[in-house]
Design a protein around this nucleic acid. Structure first.
Length: 234
DNA sequence: GCGACAG
DNA sequence: ATCTTGTCGC
């Protein structure tokens, strides 16, 4: 898909923070994806000692969640992992993967925060602005704000609060399992985001788009992105 | 100054 | 995120 906006990524941490404070004003915290027929999930993986990032995007049909397209991009990064600046490390690889994606997802899930971020611009919000698409942050842990423990049943939620403001929702996607932390990325409302996360979860903690992306990202890293050849040929 | 700290 | 086998619980 086409990238609607662009800006340099070869920045110092200080410059990156300044850019975040500028971009945050473009985030749209409301909106309706409308009739959703395609949902995408993204993820990135890398080997311990390597700075080569393998980013992937997986598109799934909604609501049956059949995988319809998978793309990957491997890029070397110099930007280190710094809490609050994740998108400057993984963003370039993710954007390259999106350039290779032919599908046009109605909504995209990212591994990390949306606006539940110190400067209101987690990776889901940042990428959402550049892609000009509805995006949702689905994080496995909290970066900013506090949340009460949701009830034990699947579907239970508890607001993520920063002072008195609700910046996201802790969501129990599976009974007796740690919740995930959902926040608006761009061009979608929180309730719609939470509803989509729950309606795309199938028996695991993570929603299918995110889970399939995670599996594929590891596959790409281990297999070098090459087509799998079965022993013995075929 | 001391912790906390998405992936 | 990644390094790693088995193991406890639903």
């Amino acid at each position: 898909m086409k990238i609607s906006e662009n800006h340099p990524f070869d920045l110092t941490p200080g410059e990156a923070i300044r850019l975040q404070e500028t971009l945050r004003r473009q985030v749209r915290l409301a909106g309706d994806p409308g009739e959703v027929s395609l949902v995408a999930g993204t993820d990135a993986s890398y080997a311990r000692g390597s700075d080569e990032i393998h980013a992937v995007v997986v598109a799934l049909r909604y609501p049956d969640l059949a995988v319809v397209e998978r793309v990957a991009a491997s890029i070397v990064t110099e930007f280190p992992y710094i809490p609050g600046l994740l998108s400057f490390r993984e963003g370039p690889a993710l954007l390259e993967a999106f350039r290779r994606l032919r599908s046009e997802p109605d909504v995209i899930f990212f591994d990390g925060q949306g606006i539940a971020h110190p400067r209101g611009l987690g990776i889901a919000s940042h990428m959402g602005i550049l892609l000009d698409r509805p995006t949702v942050g689905v994080a496995k842990s909290l970066l900013s704000g506090t949340a009460a423990e949701p009830g034990p049943d699947r579907g239970s939620t508890a607001p993520i609060l920063r002072d008195t403001e609700t910046i996201g929702m802790a969501v129990r996607t599976r009974a007796r399992t740690k919740p995930v932390y959902v926040s608006v990325g761009h061009r979608i409302g929180l309730q719609a985001a939470v509803d989509l996360v729950l309606s795309t979860t199938r028996g695991y903690r993570l929603p299918e788009p995110t889970r399939q992306a995670h599996l594929y990202a590891n596959e790409v890293r281990r297999g070098g992105g090459q087509t799998t050849l079965l022993p013995g040929g075929g």
